[in-house]
Design a protein around this nucleic acid. Structure first.
Ligand SMILES: [Mn+2]
Ligand SMILES: [Mn+2]
Ligand SMILES: [Mn+2]
Ligand SMILES: [Mn+2]
Lengths: 219, 219
DNA sequence: ATTATTATTTAGACAAATCTAAATAATTAA
DNA sequence: TTAATTATTTAGATTTGTCTAAATAATAAT
């Protein structure tokens, strides 16, 4: 499959929205890619032609085996570049997604594998997302839950499920990063906000909206 | 100026062919970019509109001050990525041009400057070409001549003026790289070939065609 | 100074990726 | 189970970058 940059972005977005094997709707994909449903329908026809998706009108989109393989390669490149930018060029985690969005389209297996090696074959990216290996295999991360559903008291932050600059900047301001250890002090039933304590920091209260996007596991 | 990838490639090619201030012809540009003269004419109109080139029909193309600035930024990114690939990812010099041809289009000054810093702000790329600084200033390399015109006996290789895989692979085979010291043993008038001696190597004879593309200065 | 050759431009077409507006299918509510 | 709403597709345009074939300009040769 020789895909254009636009087609690669579609394949990656479909992979993301499928989350396993869900059917992806035209509207959801249009929203994710910040484009119009009519454009998605057009592209769906092309991607079907290229055999990277299964698609019948009005019945939604899923990746073929070939499409999934392609998606995993793109995701691998994206996350490796994010690692590079953070680890080697000292970017902070809210800056790297946008740049990786472009770097991911440089299709060279040799480059990708050399980069991975250079970074020590990392298993997770700066947001805690797993990095597929050269064969597309993802090492399943240890079990984790979102902070709003955690029941253990003492937790460690393992991932963030929203890459938006605004959330990441908020977490920076509160000194919450991957690996941060925290203790749940209280749940407030009224708005489902959560009071937490990080060592050497004043306690702080986190909205449900934020807590949903912070992944944790018991320390 | 917000230029597309295609437009950036044109601007860089024009910069290369201008070599200072020569007027660039439609045909020369078409040949350099492996496209057709008619396409060049079309693009020339667009680039003129965007004020990156001066162009009047039948009179050839030159970069404006703005265009030159843009070209230098692209060249800077290209050569920094080449350095990265060679220095950090152990690519060899004949492999990097093609990859840099893509990486150069990621337009982020922050990324570019961080990359430069990470590499120790190198002044030349793996082919001996100078790297413009963040302001587009090129540190003039020390005076050099092509090997076929050198008159000193003992020389050091400072650059290669043909990036083709075939020439670079040839030089690899003969253990000629940047910094290689060599001695001119003889000039053969018949075909202008040159016999040279590199320490710990058998003498070898270099065709005029190759010698023209090897830049040297007295050791 | 014509003529031939070469360089460049124009005319008209096409593929990719997108859009708006309108039509149609699917789903939900009354 | 009709009617209303929402989702999706189609029709028709637009922009970008390219092409071929034909026309025109510039240059070189006779
Ligand atoms: Mn992308
Ligand atoms: Mn990420
Ligand atoms: Mn390029
Ligand atoms: Mn180079």
């Amino acid at each position: 499959m020789n895909l254009s940059v636009a087609e690669e972005n579609y394949v990656k977005a479909i992979y993301k929205l499928q989350e396993g094997d869900n059917v992806v709707s035209t509207n959801a994909l249009a929203y994710e890619l910040d484009t119009k449903p009519a454009s998605v329908t057009d592209m769906a026809k092309k991607l079907k032609e290229k055999q990277v998706i299964d698609y019948e009108k009005y019945k939604g989109i899923t990746l073929t085996a070939e499409g999934r393989k392609t998606a995993l390669q793109i995701v691998r490149r994206h996350r490796l570049w994010e690692c590079f930018l953070v680890e080697k060029l000292s970017f902070s985690w809210e800056e790297v997604h946008e740049l990786a969005e472009e770097l991911e389209h440089v299709r060279s297996e040799k480059l990708t594998n050399r980069l991975s090696e250079y970074l020590g074959n990392p298993l997770i990216d700066p947001h805690g997302d797993p990095i597929p290996d050269a064969n597309g295999k993802i090492t399943k991360p240890r079990p984790q839950t979102s902070l709003d559903q955690a029941n253990a008291k003492r937790l460690v932050v393992t991932a963030v499920t929203d890459q938006s600059v605004s959330l990441l900047a908020f977490l920076n301001a509160k000194s919450i990063k991957l690996g941060t250890q925290l203790e749940i002090i209280a749940h407030y039933e009224y708005d489902n906000s959560i009071e937490i304590k990080i060592k050497n920091q004043p306690t702080l209260t986190i909205s449900e909206q934020v807590a949903k996007h912070i992944m944790v596991r018991p320390v």
